[in-house]
Structure formats: C-alpha cells, structure tokens
Amino acid sequence: MNDFTVFSRRMQIVVMHLVLLAYTVFALFPVILVVINSMKARNAIFRTPYALPNPDNFDLVGYETVFERAGFPSYFLNSLIVTVGALALIFIAGTMAAYALSEYKFPGNTALGLYMALGIMVPIRLGTVSLLQLIVNLKLADTLTALILIYAASGLPLAVFVLSQFMRQIPRDLKDAARVDGASEYRIYALILPLIRPALGTVMVFNMIPIWNDLWFPLIVAPSEQNKTVTLGAQTFLGQFVNDWNAVLASLTLAALPVIILYIIFSRQLIRGLTAGAVK
C-alpha cells in the first residue's frame, strides 16, 4: 500500500467515527435537553437552555407541581402491575404452549403452530371495536385485568414461536432420562425451563417495552384516573399543563426515567433479541 491509500483509509475511519458521534448526539440531544432543563427555574429554561443545572438556576418547582397535581406514583404502580402481569401470563402460557408444540407429535400440531403464528404480523389494535365490546361484556371495562389480558394475547404469538424454536434444540436424552426415572410430563416441563433462560429473557424484554409504552389500550380500555398507566397519565397531564414548562419538562423526565433505567439494565438482552431474530 502506498502513502495515499493509507492516508485515505485513515480518513475513511475518521469520517465513520465522526458520523457515528454526530448521530449519537442527534439521538440523545433532545432527551438530555429535557432532563437538564427540568431542574431549572423558568427564566433559565428560556434564557440559557443549554446550561447544566447549577446553584444559580436550580429549581424543582416543576416536580412539585407534578407531585401535587398528577398521581404519578399511582400511574407507575399501574404500569408496573400491567407490565408484570402481562409478562407473567406470557411466560406461563407461552412456555407451556411452546413446550407442547415442540415436544409432542399430535394431530394438528403444525396447524396449531401456524394458527398461533398468525398474530405475529397482525396488530391487535385492528380488533378494537369487538375487543372493547368483549371487555364490557366480561365486566372488565376500566380494569387493569383487561389490559393484562390484551397484552398477553398480543404478545403470545411471537413468544410461542421463538420459544418453541428454541426448545426444539434441547437434547432429547435429557428428557428421556427424566422419563425413565418416572418424572411426569409436567415435571419435565419444569425441568427444562431453566435451560431456555436466554430465549426467555429475550422474549420478556422484547414484550416489556411496547406494553409499558402503549397509549392506545389504556386510552380506550382503562382511562379512569385510578387506572391510568404512566404513558396515559403523562399524556393527560402534558395536555393540561401545556403552558407550565417546568411541569411539562419534569413530567417528561419522570415518565422517561424508568424506561431508560430498564433499558440500561436490559439493553444487552433487547439487542440480542432483535438481532438473533433477524439472523435466524
């Protein structure tokens, strides 16, 4: 290689890093701007929006308004109940169905697998008219239970699909050895659960974020104040306090924080899930 190609190769590497850096700034800048300004006094927000919070401009008045006027602790609790509830259902029902589909040969196995897979691409939102009617008929209107069941139903297709693919790779000998020892089929199912932990983590993290962030079903199925999730609570609060910049910035920060923390903890699983699904 001559000097010129070495030079142009180096330039190329530098440019790639600059582009990535610039894009990272672009991706984070709006979020950071909101977080730093949420802790500043009103005139500082407008006069020095880029300044970090410091003793001169520090002010938590926005957070005070949020805690006085909106039930964020209750919104968090509702979101937590809905997300954990739906994930638990997806976990139990999903692993059981995936186990049956991957372990046993029975008439209709393939058809049932295809039937479960139908829901991967079709958004559950399109059935809202009848779903709302069903929820009302079941006396579940305006309950968190309704949300849990809806999210479980929409998360199950992908969960069953991914988990049954993964379970097929578990060696047969292991299960047969347990059968020889007289273990029941239920016992064997419980036995292999720890073996599919990586796939489980992926499925759970993958479902967690859309459930936590959803606006449509909380808005339609459980809109009352005591059942609001964080996303809907933030949406209503932001709509009412649109001109109170301190309160808006504080509520945005409060609503974003849990997801960002979860993301920091689970980013590895999430990214692994997203990429493994594609490579397959």
Binding site: A93, G119, G127, L131, L134, L149, A152
Partner: peptide
C-alpha cells in the same frame, strides 16, 4: 387467551 382476546375480536370486527 389468544383466541378470545385476539383472533375472535379481529374476526368479529
């Protein structure tokens, strides 16, 4: 769960 809360509402809708 899947049939009752997803497939049936989609078809009924």
């Amino acid at each position: 769960i899947y049939t009752l809360f997803m497939i049936w509402p989609l078809l009924d809708s």
